[in-house]
Design a protein around this nucleic acid. Structure first.
Lengths: 251, 251
DNA sequence: CGACGAATTGAACCTATTCAAAGGGTGTGG
DNA sequence: CCACACCCTTTGAATAGGTTCAATTCGTCG
């Protein structure tokens, strides 16, 4: 078994951090909230967006900075993190192309509540908060779609609050693995491979525990044949068994 | 000191659970998201709302039920709770007049993610989800306002995730007390009185701990002269000291 | 190959939970 | 109006789950 490659993850590494103009337009057109927008309007909107490339671990915006822009992931993976004074940071979300973050409000004195960091090489589009607001005002259907997405995220965040309150570390890790499997999962010869580089630190920051506890739980899951995992990658073998653990709410 | 009344809380108990038509119109006009709406439109919108009264501990809507309506608190206090199979429930929010809950989406197969329960005698207005959606489509400014509120709530929920991940029970209780103080606080002869009946169970469900732990922390706070508390009420004496505890992130 | 970052594992410690029991205030019914 | 009953609250002691600190192993990339 040692002859097999250890890292089944293939992360695209483009030469330039910029994403192509072609990709950029495709992203905008494919954005959930621009989906219903007439072609001409998207073209117009396109001109308001700027584009930046980021290397892995590079910060896109800092929590506390004046929040003047809205960002849209075009390519790569972006981590949304909230800091604590103690250094024990929380990983709130991992964003894929099409998802947005940053400022939605028009308030001038607003600041970003979170730090956004590229997890892989990424391309991010951004637009001035006031420009985006003008779009929302002009296109009610876009505003409604953004509201729907925000609303769904609120539910997810509240579900996480519930889990942190009611579940053990084991249950929370199982839940996160299932969510990531749904979001990043791709069938492969090692199971449902989560296509995103994922350290024990990340896992800990997503479940409100320590690196060591996350590691212990993952080791146990692997021993039990539920997952397959290595350095910076995870793959799910027994989804149903994980679901049982995820839903087992400390009776 | 035993001559003083023990319960400084005054909860209005109206005969009827219904709120007056007068109050109802005033509420609609005062709603954050209807604030900018022309008078005539509000009158029109008013006709789409239904009105119900609830006794303390009565359930307004059940998690899992088909989500067809949006609710607005007109009078009283409403608890938003998310259940766990184990019975360890989580108190997500305590709503005051003007705040909304229920369904924002137009999806037909949607269900309420939470159970809403009257904490005090309450009056609640409700509107069909599709009717509300039509209002949002017709009045972009209303949609934007709703988006802003939802967005702010998302931030709060994420802040709670951070706290559950990074703070001790003591820190989380201190935080909740400060938030409630800001939301319900009224200066009185016993300090900043939180005008909402609040049990140790509620506190535990808001901080992800047990009734006993919440009680222990509250006892300690009282011993230290930070708060004054009794059966179903709390008052803050030393806000700054609480803030220090709330921000002390387990170094 | 060598070095660094990531992951694992062990053992002591500690916070918070659990289970159990007793005390206290409120409001209701006699 | 008083007394009782119920629910809320408090407190104690034992336990468990998780953290912390420290040391080691392992894998990947330069």
């Amino acid at each position: 078994m040692s002859t097999r490659r250890k890292t089944p993850l293939h992360i695209e590494v483009t030469e330039s951090h910029q994403c192509s103009v072609d990709l950029r337009l495709r992203i905008l057109h494919g954005l959930p909230f621009f989906a219903d927008l007439p072609h001409a309007d998207v073209e117009q909107v396109n001109r308001l967006f700027h584009e930046y490339g980021y290397a892995p671990n590079e910060t896109i915006c800092f929590a506390g900075d004046s929040a003047e822009r809205l960002f849209v992931v075009a390519d790569g993976r972006v981590k949304l993190m909230r800091h604590s004074l103690s250094g024990k940071n929380v990983l709130l979300d991992m964003l894929t192309p099409g998802e947005f973050f940053g400022s939605l409000s028009a308030l001038k004195d607003d600041v970003y509540p979170d730090t956004a960091e590229a997890q892989t090489q990424s391309c991010v589009l951004s637009i001035g908060a006031s420009d985006f607001r003008r779009i929302l005002e002009k296109h009610p259907m876009v505003a409604l779609k953004v509201l729907e997405i925000t609303s769904a995220r609120l539910r997810e965040a509240q579900e996480r609050v519930r889990q942190l309150s009611a579940l053990t570390v084991e249950g929370r890790v199982a839940n996160v693995l299932l969510v990531l499997g749904r979001k990043f999962g791709k069938r492969s010869d090692v199971g449902l491979l989560i296509e995103s580089p994922l350290t024990r630190d990340d896992l800990a920051a997503m479940t409100g525990t320590t690196t060591e506890s996350a590691s212990r739980v993952m080791s146990q899951f692997q021993k039990d044949g539920l997952i397959q995992t290595g350095r910076k990658w995870v793959s799910i073998l027994a989804q149903e068994a994980l679901e049982r653990i995820a839903e087992a709410e400390a009776e």
